[in-house]
Amino acid sequence: MPAYHSTFIGEETQDSRTIGNLSLLPLNTKYRGPAYETTDYDIIEETLDLFRANSFFKNFEIKGNADRLLIYGILFISDCLSKINSRMSHKESTKVLNNLSLDNFALPGDINFPLNSLYLPPKTKNEADLLRQYLTQFRQELAERLLNRIYKDDPSVPSKYWLSFTKRKFMNKSL
C-alpha cells in the first residue's frame, strides 16, 4: 500500500511561490506571515488528516513540491507529540507548542537540517528569510490546530489516540 500524497501537487504552480523545491502554499491562518490567505481546505488540514496514516511508512516517494511541505508538517507534528505527555492540560500544552513553533529551527541547506538530501536550499538570504517566516507561520498554525484535535473531547486530558503516535518516526527522521 503506497503512502498518501498531497492533493495540492496540481495546484502548486498556479497560486503558490516556491523556494528551493518547497512550495509556499496558501494557508487559512490567523497568524501574521507571508502566506496567502485561503478559506478552503489547506495544506495544514491535509497534513493533520494524513499524519496518522502516513506515520506508518518508512519510505515516501515525493511527487511534487507540495509533498515536501507535507513531509515537513508530518515531522513537525511528530515533534509536537513528543513534547506532550498524558498529564498535560490544554493550557500547558499550548505553552509548550508555542515555544516549539517559535524556536529557532534549521532550514534546508543548514548543516543540522535532517532532510538536506530531499530539499534544495534557498538561493539568497531574502529567500531564506521568507522561508523562515513562512515555516514559522506554518508551524504556529499547525500546532494550534493539532491541539484543537488532541483536546477535542476533554481540555484536561490529551487524546490517547493521538499520543499513541509519539514513538512512530515517519521515514525514520525527526526535525
Rank of each mutant, 00 (worst) to 15 (best):
N54Q: 09
S55F: 03
F60L: 04
I62R: 11
K63I: 00
K63P: 05
G64L: 06
N65D: 07
A66H: 10
L69H: 07
L70V: 10
I71Y: 06
I71M: 12
I71F: 00
Y72L: 15
G73S: 12
I74K: 04
L75V: 10
I77P: 10
C80I: 02
K83M: 02
N85H: 03
S86K: 05
K91P: 05
S93A: 08
K95H: 01
K95D: 06
K95P: 00
V96A: 08
L97P: 12
N98A: 00
N99L: 09
N99F: 10
S101D: 14
S101Y: 13
A106Y: 12
A106R: 15
G109E: 00
G109M: 07
N112C: 00
S117T: 13
P121T: 01
P122R: 10
K123G: 06
T124K: 03
T124G: 02
K125H: 01
K125S: 01
E127M: 06
L130H: 11
R132P: 08
Q133K: 13
L135F: 12
F138H: 13
R139H: 15
R139Q: 15
Q140R: 14
E141S: 14
A143C: 10
A143Y: 08
E144P: 01
E144S: 09
K152F: 07
D154Y: 04
P155Y: 00
S156N: 07
S156H: 09
S156Q: 00
V157D: 05
